[in-house]
Design a protein around this nucleic acid. Structure first.
Length: 559
RNA sequence: GCCCCUAUAGUUUAAUGGAUAAAACUGCGGACUUCUAAGCCGUUGAUGUGGGUUCGAUUCCUACUAGGGGCACCA
């Protein structure tokens, strides 16, 4: 609808012999101002040297009758043109939503793209910090927004299985006699290794030696500890990903990408890189950035070189990619600028493609600071467990058949919703108390609205009410004014890489539905409008379900 | 020291350069007791400071203040 209006306005400008300018068609914040409004007259006024209100009058005249769904055009304020849509338009949107079903809200704005999206990417020898979950949650939502827009999409996980962090963990396993098959011991081993490393001295050198040995792969005992630790960590990661609703299409390990990256760096040591203090570096200053080390003075690849190897593997596996997107913590924002600069220097053809880094915010707790080094972290799984525990009683008292499943759906919903609610990149202050309360602007609020709708549909069915559109009320319900915006929101959320627009929308539509529900009896067999209300209710339910899916959140039928 | 990001109500967050800055939590008040009260209705309360651009600035530019992040062998 929005694009139809934009097109009609452009045609009107041509008809009036006016220049084309950049104007917007938007939803006025006050619904009394209509369903859409455009500022075209005001933008054009100065250029044309005319009064904006007079100009708006001319445009209204030229626009009148051109778009069937438009009931009324009015001039307002300093020169806005407000557009009111017809009753039929809103009814048609309900028909359309119900007909589309699971496809409702989809679009094709990314149908020409092939996207490799890398996210989650934990270190296999560090406990999964709740901060790691942020990347998973945002990344997963982006993958779904891309899929919803028709993209060919590949989900990539890039866990770290070799390097200093792994060496610390393996050292801890060996010298503290910890069990590599136990996930808690793995966490303790890393903390011990890190403390030893920071203390310096002989132990630090031991850890460096472990690191070199692991790269060389010539110490069977260390190799075995590393392999067992990795297996333990990956098994647990897989469980968490299942619970969160993420599956990966493929994985690249740093132990694979490192050697490939090293080769590339060594091959280009004269044209792209240079040797400095025994290390191989890239001089980012030439493009306004900073210098970074790609191969350290011990001859081992750093994150930088590994990422070049990672890029090469992706390139080989998916040569037709158009977008390579990596979601990580915001502290890596500057790093990725340098990395991408080096990639463009190495492979000029990459300039024609889209290399994107999406930095996420830092997650802090309102209740105090966490430190992964000291081990007093709130791990991803412990938080999920806590959320599930908190919801257990409610879930048990609910109408759900499978209480455990509902508890999990609500816990995951609460967590994801709170993280996706704000703009990507903003630091997240995680309020456990609020997340645990499940009230207000929360995942469970929207999930509850969905369950309520499912229940209403069931009741209507029992009452013998069948959805149809023959008897339509004269006035448009407020909720109908939100429904048709769904497509606009999903496109915008994807284009901006900002799922929070969708979150805001779902809260609005859920809230509008709950108001509708409080004001109107829906499943009333004696009500002539009941079939229409039912159709509307179904459409809202479908919107919420599809919208939650794009956030990676399940929509329970009963709760 | 240099670079990047951020600053909105008591708190946590919204607002593609537009009209009276939108919610939630908290506080206070209320309705129904009819389809799920994890709900609904009402109410108090905000754009860090100074300039600039613009018909119009929370949004763009600039200086300052405050907070976070980064700046060579971690990821």
């Amino acid at each position: 609808m929005k694009s139809i209006l934009e097109e009609a306005i452009k045609n009107a400008l041509t008809e009036l012999g006016l220049d084309h300018v950049d104007f917007v068609v938007e939803h006025p914040s006050d619904m009394a101002h209509g369903d859409y409004a455009t500022n075209v007259a005001m933008v054009l006024a100065k250029k044309a040297g005319r009064n904006p209100r007079e100009l708006a009058e001319d445009i209204i005249a030229a626009l009148d009758g051109k778009v069937a769904a438009v009931a009324q055009l009015e001039l307002a304020g300093p020169g806005f043109i407000n557009v009111h849509l017809t009753r039929d338009f809103f009814t048609e949107q309900i028909v359309y939503a119900n007909k589309e079903g699971a496809q409702w809200g989809s679009n094709d704005i990314a149908s020409e793209t092939e996207v490799v999206l890398e996210y989650t990417s934990p270190n296999l020898f560090k406990p999964l910090h709740i901060g790691n979950l942020v990347g998973n949650i945002i990344g997963e939502s982006l993958t779904r927004l891309f899929e919803n827009a028709g993209a060919t999409l590949y989900r990539l996980n890039y866990p770290s299985d070799i390097g200093p962090v792994v060496a610390k963990g393996v050292w801890g396993l060996k010298y503290r006699g910890l069990n590599p098959d136990n996930i808690e011991d793995l966490g303790r081993a890393y903390v011990a290794g890190n403390e030893a490393y920071e203390a310096g001295g002989a132990q630090k050198e031991e850890i460096d030696a472990v690191n070199r040995a692991l790269y060389a792969g010539d110490d069977d005992a260390l190799n075995a500890l590393r392999a067992r630790g990795i297996a333990t960590s990956r098994a647990r990661l897989a469980e968490i990903c299942t619970e969160l609703g993420t599956h990966f299409d493929f994985e690249i390990l740093e132990s694979e990408s490192g050697p490939i990256g090293s080769e590339i760096v060594k091959k280009h040591v004269d044209d792209v890189f240079e040797v400095s203090d025994g290390a191989v570096v890239y001089r980012g200053e030439q493009v306004g950035l900073h210098t970074r080390v790609f191969i350290n003075s011990q001859g081992l690849p750093t994150y930088e070189a590994k990422d070049l190897g990672n890029f090469t593997i992706k390139q080989k596996k998916y040569p037709n990619w158009t977008h390579s997107i990596i979601v990580t913590g915001g502290e890596q924002a500057e790093y990725f600028k340098v990395l991408y600069a080096s990639i463009r220097a190495l492979w000029p053809e990459a300039k024609a493609k889209n290399l994107e880094h999406i930095p996420t915010g830092f997650l802090t707790l309102t209740t105090g600071k966490m430190s992964s080094r000291k081990g007093n972290v709130l791990t991803g799984e412990s938080l999920l467990a806590e959320l599930k525990e908190a919801v257990q009683e409610r879930a048990a008292a609910s109408r759900a058949e499978d209480v455990e499943k509902l508890a999990s759906q609500l816990a995951v919903g609460a967590l994801k919703f709170q993280i996706l609610k704000q703009k990507v990149g903003m630091n997240i202050v995680f309020d456990k108390g609020r997340a645990l309360s499940f009230e207000g602007d929360s995942g469970p609020y929207v999930q509850y609205t969905h369950a309520r709708i499912s229940s209403l549909i069931q009741k209507a069915d029992a009452e013998g009410i069948t959805a149809h559109y023959n008897t339509v009320p004269d006035t448009t319900y407020a909720i109908e004014k939100f429904l048709y915006r769904f497509n606009e929101v999903t496109s915008m959320a994807l284009e901006a890489r900002e799922p929070h627009h969708l979150v805001t929308y779902l809260l609005e539509i859920a809230s509008a539905f709950n108001t509708f529900y409080a004001q109107e009896k829906i499943a009333d067999a004696d009500d002539a409008y009941a079939p229409y209300k039912l159709a509307l209710t179904q459409a809202v339910g479908q919107t919420i379900k599809n919208g939650l899916w794009m956030l990676g959140i399940e929509a329970p039928e009963r709760m």
